[in-house]
Write a protein that binds this DNA or RNA. Structure first.
Lengths: 342, 342
DNA sequence: ATGAAAGCGCTAACAG
DNA sequence: CTGTTAGCGCTTTCAT
């Protein structure tokens, strides 16, 4: 049987309150008392019942992180940054996989684990602004990561996706490429279409700024952002009418899939086709060729998300209005655009 | 203010018990009563306080999964399988990152979140059998994943690492390679040395069975299993005295790092050097060249781990003796050993 | 400085 | 079929 505060108290011949004081390191306890209680504590191996504490305290010290997929390297790396940031605030992170399904995202946002978690950080895919508006006002504090369309009533952290896409595309143009494909387009209704739309916008902007009219045949559509779809979309581009000399992929896994297909076809990267992605996942540092990409400041994102959440958790917090934070990013040019360095 | 069971009861003019019955779908409630209560429930948007339920029930429906690193693709993929298996048992999974640090692993195994979680699935790195023996017997149910040295007093699921390594090495030998390196050796004291030791053993066995005496110069050591160390170790091998014609890497990330280095040096895979790994991570299906590997039955592992844990959670459970389960695996031969198919 | 007692919100006995 | 009541184990007024 588990040892309770009560048991320790009986055994030490003191009241429950005194034991509680010792356990929680309260100041007003006489040294001798403290010592005696501590002895019993050690001897019995007492450990507080956290469920009881939670009930009493009304908070748990746990925050949830809801992501579409854990086995997408970008999210895995982001998770690490959130977990580390949370640790600094003495919070633990419960990771949740939504698969990008609207039901699950709505349930998570509504706080289906209220009283088990103090707050939620979520990277939404299918969730709409209206879902959030319908949310119970007493629901748990929420911070959104990544893209969102429209005006949302929650804190939000993301990079400027249009600017990031523009920079990636411009990099290709500066290398002299003139027929730059966009790989990763998604129908407006689809999952992830928020990000896809913005990244396409940036690509469009960059081409026009360079005096190039984007050819619709340069746009390759995907159902989602996995490697397999990058590979298939690249094949579709190559089989299509437009001979492109560069590909801006909407993320790194798509880019790695595209490179795979190019290699299968015997095409050289970047000599025949240059490739760039977004996310700066670890894989791209060791792929063959190494992958050029836009690197979002993942640590900044994780840290900011946790900080925003913590601010809403603090009892003294004045319920600040929803904030929108843009995280930084930078171009990381590697072999898939620059070629082998010597 | 949050609405409690009590509030609903007052408002509906019934007792708390009745409301509780309705909420929990108990049978003995008259239809009209149920309807009336349900109306108030909907109207007030009542949702039970889970912390209170947990305290009352003595269980939470949450299990923890403690892994060394979340951003290692193998663990990310394994996580997915555990999460899916847990869902079938109506359990949610709290993912924990230990970084392979002994302190954290000991803390996790001791149940530092007792009463917040019902059980733990852990992939230990630095944890020793003695740490477990010192464990509080009333501590939470534990299932270990992956390697372990010695006799442990806990359930365990893993593939037969020696056999897996033997098969990988044999595959290389069957292709006519005669100087097969082992990349991933670790000093006995190191993190992950358990797995590394067994995989080296399998390599050794396979070579001897083929009448080849393993050359110590064919063994490359790494501090841990990341891509960067695979790349560095491969460079060390190439700069060393032994000209190898194949490399058995102790996992896929090491293999991808090795392929990176080979490409940098202008060597062809597999013509000059064939490469094989273990884990069958998604990356290897799209790398250039695609990666041959040993595929552990991840779904089987996740499912088995959850099932074992659940059996110990069931109140009727008879506390079975610690079980040891071997999961299956199979060879997946791709371009890094077979070459480009045509 | 220490103790007694109330109560966090829920469910399970036990009555009625 | 429904209501009353006693805890789950802890922290926290309020006394002493």
């Amino acid at each position: 049987m588990r040892v309770r505060l009560r048991d320790v108290a009986d055994r030490a011949g003191v009241s429950v309150k005194t034991v509680s004081n010792v356990v929680n390191g309260y100041t007003h306890v006489s040294p001798e008392m403290r010592e005696r209680v501590q002895a019993v504590l050690d001897e019995t191996g007492y450990r507080p019942n956290l469920a009881a504490r939670n009930l009493r305290a009304g908070r748990t010290g746990v925050i949830a992180l809801a992501l579409p997929e854990l086995d997408n390297p970008y999210f895995a790396e982001l998770t690490r940054s959130v977990v580390e940031a949370a640790e600094e605030h003495h919070l633990t992170v419960l990771v949740d996989q939504t698969d990008g399904l609207r039901d699950r995202e709505v349930a998570a946002a509504a706080g289906f684990r209220h009283n088990l978690i103090d707050g939620l950080i979520m990277s939404p895919v299918s969730l709409g602004a209206d879902d959030l508006d319908r949310r119970d006002p007493t629901a748990l504090p929420l911070v959104l990561l990544g893209e969102k369309a429209g005006d949302w009533t929650a804190d939000h952290v993301a990079i400027d996706n249009v600017a990031a896409a523009r920079q990636a595309t411009t990099h290709l143009l500066e290398l002299g490429r003139v027929r730059v494909a966009a790989l990763g387009h998604q129908p407006a209704s689809s999952r992830e279409s928020g990000v896809a739309h913005l990244r396409r916008q940036g690509w469009d902007d960059a081409l026009r700024a360079a005096g190039i009219g984007p050819d619709p045949a340069w746009v390759a559509e995907v159902p989602s952002f996995g490697r397999e779809h990058g590979a298939a979309a690249m094949a579709a581009l190559l089989d299509g009418p437009a001979a492109v000399d560069a590909v801006f992929c909407f993320n790194d896994t798509l880019a790695l899939g595209a490179i795979h297909t190019l290699a299968q076809r015997g095409l050289r990267v970047p000599e025949d086709v240059a490739v760039i992605g977004i996310d700066n996942i670890e894989d791209g540092r060791y792929s063959v060729p190494t992958l050029s990409t836009i690197a979002p400041a993942k640590d900044e994102i994780g840290r900011a998300a946790v900080r925003m959440l913590v601010e809403r958790l603090e009892p003294g917090g004045e319920e600040p209005a929803p904030r929108d934070l843009r995280a930084g990013f930078e171009l990381v040019a590697r072999e898939s655009t620059l070629g082998r360095r010597r």
